[in-house]
Amino acid sequence: MNVTRFDEAPEYFPANHVLMRCVRLQGHEAGPAESLWLGVSTLEPGGYTTMDASSVEKHYVVLAGEVCVATDDGEVALRTFDSCRLAPGERRALHNRSGRPAQLLLAMPFARPAPR
């Protein structure tokens, strides 16, 4: 078992994330994992990411507050315990337009699965 205490989770600094604090809960520098890693991002009021895509799918769960997720197809506001999945290659931007911090759980595989 690998335990990561939230207050000891290693911070990481992804590009194009503004007014956000990102920590890893499992995987990468937070410890061993085979298929996916978990992180939590805290978006301060006004915090955002730019519109970018990743080669692997992403799953988000809002843990606190409200986060707007924009894609090329539109935008949706996610509230506490709402979730979304973004497909590989799907561009997204995150925004905290509220006056309170928001927290978002991220689950992502390490690499794109091999074609079947």
Rank of each mutant, 00 (worst) to 15 (best):
A9F: 06
P10K: 12
E11V: 14
E11S: 13
Y12K: 08
P14G: 09
A15M: 07
A15C: 06
N16E: 12
H17N: 02
L19G: 09
M20T: 01
R21C: 04
R21P: 06
C22H: 00
V23F: 12
L25Y: 03
L25P: 01
L25C: 04
L25D: 01
G27Q: 05
H28M: 14
H28K: 10
H28R: 13
H28T: 10
E29A: 14
A33H: 07
E34Q: 09
E34C: 13
E34D: 15
G39L: 02
S41F: 03
T42L: 04
T42F: 04
L43Q: 00
P45M: 12
P45A: 13
P45G: 03
P45C: 11
P45N: 15
T50L: 13
M51A: 12
D52L: 14
A53C: 06
S54R: 14
S54I: 14
S55G: 15
E57K: 09
V61W: 02
L63A: 03
L63Q: 02
A64G: 14
E66D: 06
E66Y: 06
E66S: 05
V67F: 12
C68V: 06
C68E: 05
V69F: 11
A70T: 07
D72T: 11
D72H: 12
D73F: 11
E75M: 08
F81N: 01
D82E: 08
S83L: 11
S83V: 00
L86M: 01
L86C: 01
A87P: 03
A87V: 05
G89V: 08
E90H: 10
E90W: 04
L94F: 12
L94N: 01
